[in-house]
């Protein structure tokens, strides 16, 4: 295969790759309002992923039927939640990246939080 046809093939493949993916970039909401119900020590509806734009605000509420400590990793917030109680975290999303919040002692993940740049 001569060099020219290689170049043509490369250009075609590149064009295909670009058009196939254009415009599918996801956009995170500016603020996140998250409420998790912990039932039998686990988040109701499974572990979900929430996105928020960096610089936005995160309002994160955990209602728990078990006593534990809620830990938001990366941001390193810790708050105790009593059995049947509620804790609330309000914070600006100033560090980008993927973080989990978990029931620290049970090592149970509650949510994935993705702060997008």
């Amino acid at each position: 295969m001569p060099v020219r046809s290689c170049a043509v093939m490369a250009a075609l493949l590149a064009a295909a790759a670009l058009t196939g993916c254009a415009g599918t970039s996801s956009s995170a909401p500016k603020n996140a309002d998250i409420t998790v119900n912990v039932v039998n020590g686990k988040p109701q509806g499974g572990v979900k992923t929430y996105k928020v734009k960096k610089g936005g605000h995160v309002h994160f509420v955990v209602k728990s039927d078990v006593a534990d400590e809620v830990h938001v990793h990366g941001y390193n917030f810790h708050k105790d939640v009593p059995k049947g109680g509620t804790v609330t975290f309000d914070f600006p999303a100033k560090i980008d990246g993927g973080f989990i919040a978990e029931l620290e002692n049970a090592h149970q993940t509650l949510i994935n939080l993705q702060v997008e740049p």
Binding site: A17, G20, H73, G97, G98, F99
Partner: peptide, 13 residues
């Protein structure tokens, strides 16, 4: 404590 975010599709392409 912190995971990488997935690469956006545009950058991937």
């Amino acid at each position: 404590g912190k995971q990488d975010l997935p690469i956006p599709r545009v950058l991937f392409a």
